[in-house]
Design a protein around this nucleic acid. Structure first.
Lengths: 159, 159
DNA sequence: TATTGTTATACTCTATAACTATA
DNA sequence: TATAGTTATAGAGTATAACAATA
């Protein structure tokens, strides 16, 4: 349980951020696991469900996942009945990934879970503290060049 | 580059936290990589250097790494000349892990790097915003039961 | 019998390269 | 020739089980 430790980095903002962030990701993964979906699958499904149709390559670029790894991802999600492949009409090389009704329902279910997770994370904060926290994080995310809805943990490295 | 996206979870605090946290961890890893050490190695070395001698099993418990995986970790660090094994005098089963002079110097070097990393993360914030951010994160870390200096990303799962 | 350190094996995840079909 | 999707292979990281030495 780490009764004490007296390490210097324990006071670091970078450490606090990555520590709380990692736990935050774990909690999210644990909650959506109950719905049978992984964070990475949800990231893909969420993009597919909201917006114009995306090809596998576009999804790969968008999420920072290599297109090679996108294949198995889409395979799983197609087998789960959340999406289906549809040949591009103008470019017959591509597959446009579209959500099924079940996929859209699942996205809605996950999105309903998120406010509750956010609340549990900030249960010990005042409303004002929470607002300031969100704002500060958004500012940092911008300054780091982090795109909205693109998560480094979901991504691999190659484009 | 994710020109847009319009996903619902992009507004989530949990998402922001894990996104910024993951990048934060990446930046830390990138900086210490210049000194030839990984975050996990640094976590071990930092504990070994500051405080009473630790056995491999104690370090494993402390950091949430399985003792099986601690063997290779200590091997690497011993080969790098940062620590050395010393048989326990009272309990001859254990190895007490002690820092070499080079190990202590390396910890100091890494610790010198951290304030600069923290500053770069909060460059877009006012001093007051930064203080409030650190405080809010510390409150959340406490409420989540996160021990100081024990990082979920460093840990495996088994004890 | 339990615990510490160790080793070996399997499994997961990802990185790299190569193949096909279309453009 | 270049691109989208696919497949195969290898490598890192980790989980599991079993072993020797010591308690």
């Amino acid at each position: 349980m780490a009764t004490e430790a007296s390490t210097a980095y324990g006071d670091s903002l970078a450490f606090l951020l990555s520590q709380v962030g990692a736990r935050s990701a774990e909690l999210f993964a644990a909650r959506v696991a109950g719905l049978g979906i992984t964070p990475r699958q949800f990231a893909v499904l969420s993009h597919v469900e909201s917006g114009t149709p995306r090809t596998q390559q576009q999804l790969a670029d968008l999420l920072g996942i290599h297109r090679n790894n996108m294949v198995a991802l889409i395979d799983e999600m197609e087998a789960a009945g959340w999406v289906y492949r549809q040949r591009g009409e103008t470019d017959r090389r591509v597959f446009e990934i579209r959500p099924t009704d079940a996929g859209a329902v699942l996205v809605a279910k996950v999105n309903e879970l998120i406010p509750d997770l956010d609340s549990s994370l900030t249960a010990a904060l005042t409303d004002r503290q929470r607002e300031q926290l969100v704002h500060a994080l958004a500012v940092i995310a911008d300054s780091l060049g982090l795109a909205r809805a693109v998560h480094p943990h979901v991504a691999s490295r190659g484009s």
